[in-house]
Amino acid sequence: MSLSSSFGSAASAYARHRPDYAQAAVRWALEFAPGPRVLDLGAGTGKLAATLVAVGADVVAVEPDPAMLTELRRAMPAVRALPGSAEAIPLPDASVDAVVAGNALHWFDMAVAGPEIARVLAPGGVLAGLWNIMDDRIGWVADLERVSGSAAIGPRDTLTRWRAATAGMLIPSDGVAVRFGSAEQADFPHGQCRTADSLVATLATRAGMLVMPEPEREATLGRIRDFLGSRPETAEGEFTLPMLTGVLRARRR
């Protein structure tokens, strides 16, 4: 199983445990969109689509994984949800005012997806990637990152890593920047209420964890449980996990 195709095996857990997106981040992502039509690309179980609907967007969702698409349709029956991918978008030319991707843009083959995204966008339309990231400026979060390892907390899962990993995501060499202007980054507070058990369950839905051999996976999750149980911030009851929604946006030329 590849990393990008791993999520369908945990679609219901993904829907239960993954965070939604900060409304302020979504509004900033769509600030320059010429209209309300928004494509949620790689929409998963509808986490971002729900926030888009809440801020008044006219949403169509596209998702390649059948299990994720089923979960999305169950959770949001009023949203038009289609099978498809970033590399083959099942929409007409210039049919949306913004294309957004929640924790998904890094999975796209931008050499192919870039022209497809530009094709479906109206002139002046917006492309935006959004990621939910942990704030590693907080001491215990930085310690959790070290304990967890890269399978549970990957290259875009903390603020420091996200800034570095996405800064050059839309550069001329990927064939996208010729169609889009300069990209901008911004991040918005989005703390999440968690318990030690629910945070372990969330980290268990990371792609690296889903493809890990079971003994290694259980050992990693056990190490995380032990760490959370040892910290006064997380050992007892509910706590706020310091998170942010990071946004990378660019406008179609």
Rank of each mutant, 00 (worst) to 15 (best):
residue 201 A to M: 03
residue 10 A to I: 01
residue 9 S to F: 01
residue 85 S to G: 09
residue 106 H to P: 04
residue 157 D to P: 14
residue 24 A to I: 06
residue 191 G to N: 15
residue 20 D to V: 01
residue 36 P to N: 13
residue 136 D to S: 07
residue 252 R to C: 15
residue 232 P to V: 10
residue 99 V to K: 02
residue 88 A to T: 04
residue 106 H to K: 07
residue 14 Y to F: 07
residue 180 F to G: 11
residue 99 V to A: 04
residue 21 Y to Q: 00
residue 17 H to D: 10
residue 136 D to A: 06
residue 150 S to I: 01
residue 92 P to G: 14
residue 159 L to G: 10
residue 236 E to H: 05
residue 81 A to R: 02
residue 23 Q to I: 02
residue 69 L to T: 01
residue 38 V to P: 00
residue 192 Q to A: 10
residue 192 Q to G: 04
residue 84 G to T: 04
residue 96 V to G: 10
residue 212 M to E: 08
residue 109 D to C: 01
residue 105 L to S: 05
residue 94 A to F: 07
residue 154 G to Q: 09
residue 83 P to A: 15
residue 128 A to V: 00
residue 239 F to E: 07
residue 235 A to R: 15
residue 166 T to L: 09
residue 230 S to E: 11
residue 243 M to F: 03
residue 135 D to P: 13
residue 72 L to N: 10
residue 33 A to E: 06
residue 146 R to Y: 03
residue 233 E to H: 03
residue 88 A to K: 07
residue 29 A to E: 12
residue 216 E to I: 06
residue 153 I to C: 01
residue 250 A to K: 15
residue 90 P to L: 10
residue 121 L to K: 13
residue 111 A to M: 09
residue 220 T to M: 03
residue 61 A to S: 14
residue 178 V to S: 11
residue 104 A to D: 10
residue 189 P to L: 14
residue 180 F to Y: 11
residue 14 Y to N: 02
residue 206 R to C: 12
residue 51 T to P: 00
residue 106 H to Y: 12
residue 135 D to Y: 11
residue 127 L to F: 15
residue 179 R to M: 11
residue 156 R to G: 05
residue 153 I to S: 06
residue 68 M to C: 00
residue 73 R to E: 11
residue 97 D to F: 02
residue 172 P to Y: 13
residue 193 C to L: 15
residue 76 M to E: 02
residue 128 A to D: 07
residue 92 P to D: 15
residue 30 L to T: 11
residue 56 G to S: 14
residue 203 L to K: 14
residue 73 R to P: 08
residue 61 A to I: 09
residue 201 A to I: 00
residue 80 R to T: 10
residue 166 T to W: 06
residue 114 G to E: 03
residue 157 D to W: 14
residue 138 I to K: 04
residue 70 T to M: 05
residue 53 V to S: 03
residue 155 P to I: 08
residue 120 V to T: 00
residue 8 G to V: 05
residue 203 L to M: 15
residue 234 T to W: 05
residue 196 A to W: 02
residue 214 E to M: 01
residue 196 A to F: 04
residue 220 T to Y: 04
residue 8 G to R: 00
residue 143 D to G: 09
residue 20 D to Q: 14
residue 137 R to D: 09
residue 203 L to W: 14
residue 143 D to F: 09
residue 112 V to W: 08
residue 250 A to G: 08
residue 90 P to I: 02
residue 223 R to P: 03
residue 29 A to H: 13
residue 238 E to I: 00
residue 176 V to A: 06
residue 40 D to M: 03
residue 163 R to Q: 15
residue 248 L to S: 03
residue 162 W to I: 10
residue 163 R to W: 13
residue 93 D to V: 10
residue 71 E to G: 02
residue 244 L to K: 14
residue 100 V to Y: 03
residue 252 R to V: 03
residue 52 L to S: 08
residue 94 A to I: 05
residue 88 A to F: 01
residue 79 V to H: 03
residue 150 S to A: 15
